[in-house]
Design a binder for these strands. Structure first.
Lengths: 359, 359
DNA sequence: CAGCGCAATGTAATGGATTACATGAAATCG
DNA sequence: CGATTTCATGTAATCCATTACATTGCGCTG
């Protein structure tokens, strides 16, 4: 199923004959610009950094030279001197997960408003890779890290970590974090299923290493308690957030123990997998089984039926994370904060009142 | 529908009293390490860069100090001196589009095999943002750019641009590029629809600014020609690659002129939108209308019905792009290459032989 | 007109690592 | 044993921009 044939349109091998090329377009330095504009390097630097302190005549002359020669100051030298990069790295476990893209948008919005740039690092939930990106901060290539993982890398700089945790959080950590109240949000989703008359409600959990997954499970359990439904362990399956995991979870649930008339999934991708697996077993959604997801990714609206899910305030999560990061960078003394946003259940087509046919 | 309530768990404002904190954990420099290990800075640097040239005793001693004090060399200083960062920036128009994530995986695989790091920049197809990221190369913060856009930013360094174009390409440009043969791939998709008996085949085009979109349209038109089907302009609609654009395109097509029994979409997200719009008009896929997408994103398999689509060799595209980048960085004299991979049609459930009921 | 202040610019120190070259000591050779 | 490598390490130049401090020249005041 992967690509096989391929052709190569190499455009003629000119060989190494042109090795000592004319190099008309060399890299420029302040010195050169200064020499050509007949000023000192300090004046060039000032003309670019704080134009108001340079006389108009010289300023114009310097800018002309800069433009003509296409000079861009070496950011390494500048950052080395000023000890800041105005760059922050956002760590995403999986860029393929559409949930994160919206969060990142929020981060970037605030970043641009405040003159920062954002670069993304995909970690695939690997500790090694998280640490590798975090080391960029230790190595002064970036000012801070916003991580969307439940682990927080160690970057001991001045005893303070310029790290913000978004969407996830670490228990008992001293890290500023933004996330939603997952217990309440999950509870609301299950309450809704209960309200529709469901009593045998299955749960597809996420990786238990992540506190927010534990919270979602807890929310599920508390909602059952509220409804005086005895928790049936056979109705809980664990997945890793992937579509495939959702499918497998349903296989397991169906092959086990009692039947169920609703499933609550810890994220939308597993819900998509669940719907898929249910229908391939001849079960209709929502007539036979109601399905609820979590996150409200872009595709949730476009599944068949469209997915009822818990909408996280993705943009707000990102914006808040970046805002906290800026606070932290401006004053490393500010104590870490935890900000808890709320999420809303979005009811779509994958949920329906329980029918007596199954259950 | 967005988050409203929120609480703030600020953990007690300790105030600025601890302003002159002990700073036990200051940032270290080679100098300090050298002093503590009782060697020169050169030896410290060597112990870290080329351990084999340092005697075992001193090497161990230095490493012990480095580890104990948690020293990380300042990458800015190093990169300034060595004039390379071993960092490349991958520019993605839209990280929310799952197509790119697989390509990026490919890029990262090769990058890690060769000791490079990859950071991602989302451009939202904005020229300004593309240029801003490209300037990082001019400013020496990154060694090169892999762009997945149909525009190529200008970075005149030594008269050479360390830029590789992946998935897209620019006509007549001197930029190394990897992409698939979109004319052939699109043609194969339409040939398949013809083979199923379809003759009224609609087309949802992508933004005509992108050469690959023009190619896909050309592939569609050539396939019709081969089948001796007269091109009907009323059966072509243009979209911007979003799900919503796919929906709107179907609205337009349905409201216009003749009917059709198949739609070929320039990407999967528009195909998802198209399926959605068709079924909300009471048209069944594939019984009434067959739908074909392009890209084979992860969700294509999980739509209802699952989507027939042209599978791009996403991983290979990424790997090849990064491989070219490394070639370019190792020898700026190598002439630009265009590498054309091939794509395969993946037949799933959204296509069926034409029935006589509609058409 | 001396003296002061201010504006504009220049000189040189600085940031933190790498590395060419220099040096000294030990090992090898004839 | 003296000469020549070889090995380990040190000294200092270098990468390039920023910026504290120094200098110059001018206008204004008393």
């Amino acid at each position: 199923m992967s690509a096989v044939g391929s052709k190569d349109k190499g455009q003629g091998a000119k060989g190494k004959s042109t090795k000592a090329a004319p190099q008309q377009n060399r890299v420029r330095t302040v010195k050169e610009i200064a020499a050509i504009a007949k000023v000192s390097v300090a004046t060039v630097s000032r003309a670019l950094q704080r134009p108001e302190v340079v006389s108009e005549a010289t300023r114009l002359r310097i800018h002309e030279v800069v433009k003509r020669l296409g000079y861009t100051p070496n950011a390494l030298a500048r950052n080395l001197r000023t000890a800041r990069t105005r760059l922050i790295v956002a760590l995403v476990p999986d860029i393929a997960n559409p949930f994160f893209s919206e969060v990142i948008r929020g981060i970037e919005q605030v970043a641009h408003e405040t003159g920062y740039s954002v670069l993304l690092g995909e970690t695939q939930s690997s500790l090694v890779r998280e640490q590798a990106y975090a080391d960029m901060v230790a190595a002064r290539q970036a000012d801070g890290i916003i991580t969307m993982s439940h682990r927080v890398p160690t970057i001991p700089i001045d005893g303070r970590l310029p790290v913000v945790n978004a969407c996830e959080y670490v228990k008992d950590s001293q890290i500023s974090s933004v996330y939603i109240d997952n217990v309440v949000a999950a509870g609301a989703a299950v309450d809704y299923l209960v309200m529709l008359g469901h009593r045998d409600i299955a749960f597809i959990a996420g990786p238990p290493t992540s506190p927010i997954c534990v919270d979602r499970e807890r929310g599920y359990q508390l909602a059952l308690q509220r409804a005086k439904i005895r928790l049936n362990p056979a109705l809980t399956a664990v997945g890793d957030f992937s579509i495939e995991a959702g499918e497998r979870a349903i296989e397991r649930l169906l092959s086990q123990a009692r039947s169920f008339s609703a499933v609550f999934c810890s994220n939308d991708e597993m819900a998509i997998g669940a719907m898929r697996a249910l229908s391939s077993h001849g079960l209709r959604v929502p007539e036979d089984v109601s399905v609820v997801g979590f996150d409200d990714i872009r595709f949730a609206r476009y599944t068949t039926p469209s997915l009822t899910t818990v909408a996280q305030p993705k943009n707000a999560l990102g914006r808040e994370a970046m805002t906290m990061m800026i606070e932290l960078l401006n004053d490393p003394q500010v104590p870490p904060r935890k900000r808890v946003l709320s999420a809303d259940l979005v009811v779509r087509g994958s949920t329906a009142p329980r029918t007596s046919k199954r259950g």
